[in-house]
């Protein structure tokens, strides 16, 4: 099968590679670029473990072809936070016990990161609706919701303080 020349930016870094037209973004990330934060849970875009941010939108990278990501700006869980510490969402997930086995967590936090940009002041209902594309088998979501609301409050307080 002929390969395609693909350029994309992943967590701020330029990447160039050859991929088959049928190759999925999740496989390119995990197996070629060694970015193993996003996971594979269902391959049918139901579970959200593979969620990454593509050009400002949450996408399930198990149902995006790498070819579709040509030229795109991708952020994964590895791109949140910084060397000095955790992103507020990461901190709040820890603080409020928003994770157990950790398998859904990268997708969950990456989705929450976008959700809080779409809606910086969400209600509990907004969070529950906005996160419904990401499944978790361990936590029952209650503490995930709590963590996201706490992160929103913290981010807003920081924003206010800066103004």
């Amino acid at each position: 099968m002929g390969k395609m020349h693909i350029k994309l930016t992943v967590n701020g870094k330029q990447e160039e590679l050859l991929a088959e037209p049928r190759e999925l973004l999740i496989h390119v990330l995990r197996e070629r670029l060694g970015i193993t934060g996003p996971h594979i849970g269902c391959e049918t875009s139901h579970c959200g473990a593979c969620t990454v941010d593509m050009d400002g939108k949450s996408v399930k990278s198990c149902t995006v072809f790498a070819a579709q990501a040509n030229g795109a700006n991708i952020t994964t869980i590895e791109g949140l936070g910084n060397p000095d510490g955790l992103h507020v969402l990461q901190q709040m997930f820890k603080e409020h016990h928003g994770l157990q086995c950790g398998f859904c967590t990268p997708g969950m936090i990456t989705r929450a990161w976008r959700l809080l940009q779409e809606n910086p002041n969400p209600t509990e209902e907004d969070v529950r609706f906005g996160m419904a594309g990401n499944l978790c088998r361990c936590t029952g979501y209650q503490n995930i919701v709590k963590a996201i609301l706490a992160a929103a409050a913290e981010l807003n307080a920081a924003k206010e303080a800066a103004q």
Binding site: I77, G81, G102, T105
Partner: peptide
Amino acid sequence: EDARFTQGKGNY
């Protein structure tokens, strides 16, 4: 465990 898992540094 959480510092690892929240940063996508789990090892599955």
